[in-house]
């Protein structure tokens, strides 16, 4: 079984509203894809994604696996800049190691 990976540019992500962004990600993940976002999601967006995911959990879709780097502070420590975020279906993706600068994940076909 093939697993598709979508690498989404920061420009593409920034052109979408929050709702569009979350819908776009979840639709991709529910189709079985691994979605990698340049620039990442803010922690608020990640929380909204978890909330949206929970409304769509079913027997066939148990949820998502999400990994990202902790946000970096910028602009004199006032604004948090998010970095890369990886999201995949929990059925096929599993994070095995993670620290502030490294994410190791295994992807296995069902």
């Amino acid at each position: 079984m093939e697993i598709k990976m979508d690498l989404i540019s920061e420009d593409k992500i920034n052109s979408m509203s929050s709702t569009e962004k979350l819908r776009f990600i979840l639709d991709g993940v529910k189709s079985g894809n691994i979605v990698i976002l340049e620039g990442g999601l803010t922690s608020e967006e990640q929380m909204q994604l978890i909330e949206l995911t929970m409304t769509e959990v079913s027997d066939d879709f148990p949820g998502i696996e999400i990994s990202g780097y902790q946000a970096k502070r910028s602009f004199f420590n006032l604004r948090k800049k998010s970095r890369l975020t990886v999201i995949g279906p929990a059925k096929v993706m599993r994070t095995i190691k993670k620290d502030k600068d490294l994410i190791s994940a295994v992807v296995s076909a069902v």
Binding site: S43, I50, I66
Partner: peptide, 17 residues
């Protein structure tokens, strides 16, 4: 357990925000 889970990071990020 390993504390570096995304759930922990997301909760902390939201509380800080």
């Amino acid at each position: 357990e390993d504390p570096y889970t995304q759930t922990n990071i997301v909760i902390i990020g939201n509380l800080e925000a």
